[in-house]
Write a protein that binds this DNA or RNA. Structure first.
Lengths: 239, 239
DNA sequence: CATCATTACTGAATCAAGTTCATTTTTGTG
DNA sequence: CACAAAAATGAACTTGATTCAGTAATGATG
């Protein structure tokens, strides 16, 4: 087998793997989790059922890979959207819009189909988990720099803000999915952010007292400690 | 068939129905959604598999009934807890504690097993949906009277507050379930409510740094660090 | 370009869990 | 006690995931 041929073959394999993932996401989006049988996915990808199992160990692995694909794409888009936003507020806004829209669209895959696998201890070893961590890192970055700029309160832990942010947004998306009408993403997100931002923003402060400086310093030390814990601790990294 | 006999028989039927529901919730709690097969549930209730289908049309109906049971119980407890709390803040706190704890305990049933059925349009016709609405009514009541008392901002819609509250709490519960250690409910809930309440409350006079809060926060971080060190230790021992 | 080895693919067979149903057991009544 | 109605059972059936024995495509080699 020559080098060139090897490359071509690998490319073909990767291309087909990609086709299966794309088909999987499409079937979930268009037919829902209930109807996303292996047979339907194989058909959508133009393959026999058995072939799917040459590329993915089982259905769970396939869904995990599809979710990884979702998060990889979402992270790229989130990073670019955030990079284009000048201040903390608009960064949070564009991340929230993006997250709400994507999660709403791919709810059957992200929420319905994945739910059952999350609790298993092996989940933490998967690529999907790692990509999810990378994705929530975008939020963490916004918040950390927000704290540094004084836009965000320094006395809150990032994981707590994360739970409030993603939890609230995803609950909105779920509620929106229960309604039959298509949601007004902008209005939904604005409503939610009104609450979230008020909870998370730095209070406008006046005249510094001497003691206040010390307390502020303590607060920022807390943030640093948590920072260290965060990198050691993978426990709270979920969306 | 006499009146008395009829009553006895109906009671017996209801008693058995209850036994099945109790068994269902227990199996989900103790073995998780994956292992909650009809055979396991039947065994736990001391019945043959087929018998379950005399009481519930299919597995979906059984789960719906179990969820209804869950919400009925939760609503009773929430109403009583709230009735005993004097002010808006403590009402929210006790509801949040209760919700977090129960959802955490019955996550496999409430979140994993139900997820797939929620999006179906028929869900809105079920008893579970109605009971869920009644349950969120407790929260709505707290918020409405909070607005009336001036504790809660009047410019936010109740549904938006609801999404933020339940979404955030449930996301915390989910994160907590992914960790292996049992959660400190109080600390989790306090963290979340710090954000939620600040977002939802009428603005307090600002500028002053709340030294007591910072101290409390330092204490909780210390506890977290200790927790972390302890769990790192046990991890090492487990291998 | 014919041969062969390797790799990719297929769909029928197998397995597992939910569901049905013919049969058996229990219950209550005359 | 005899018997009709109700309740319960578990083996058979259905459906969807997974495996596997066999077939087709690919590409290296003489």
């Amino acid at each position: 087998m020559t080098e060139a041929a090897a490359k071509t073959r690998r490319q073909k394999v990767e291309q087909k793997e990609r086709a299966i993932l794309t088909a999987t996401r499409a079937v979930f989006r268009e037919k829902g989790a209930e109807e996303a049988k292996i047979s339907a996915i194989a058909q959508a990808a133009g393959l026999a059922e058995g072939t799917v199992y040459l590329y993915f160990k089982n259905k769970q692995a396939l869904l995990m890979a599809a979710v990884s694909d979702f998060y990889a794409e979402l992270t790229r888009d989130a990073e670019s959207a955030v990079a284009q936003s000048p201040d903390t507020g608009s960064q949070v806004l564009s991340l929230a819009r993006l997250h709400f829209g994507r999660v709403f669209d791919e709810w059957p895959l992200i929420a319905e189909a994945m739910g059952p696998y999350l609790p298993s201890p092996e989940y933490r070893e998967t690529e999907a988990f790692a990509l999810n961590r990378r994705y929530v890192g975008v939020f963490d970055g916004i918040m950390r720099s927000g704290v540094a700029r004084g836009d965000i309160r320094a006395d809150l832990s990032i994981p707590a803000m994360r739970d409030a942010f993603y939890g609230g947004l995803e609950h909105c998306a779920r509620s929106a999915r229960l309604r039959t009408t298509t949601p007004d993403i902008d209005a939904e997100v604005r409503q939610f952010l009104t609450i979230f931002m008020a909870g998370v923003m730095g209070r406008p402060s006046h005249g510094e007292i001497d003691g206040a400086r010390v307390v502020r310093r303590l607060q920022s030390v807390i943030v640093d400690i948590e920072e260290q814990m965060r990198s050691a601790d993978t426990d709270r990294e979920q969306t």
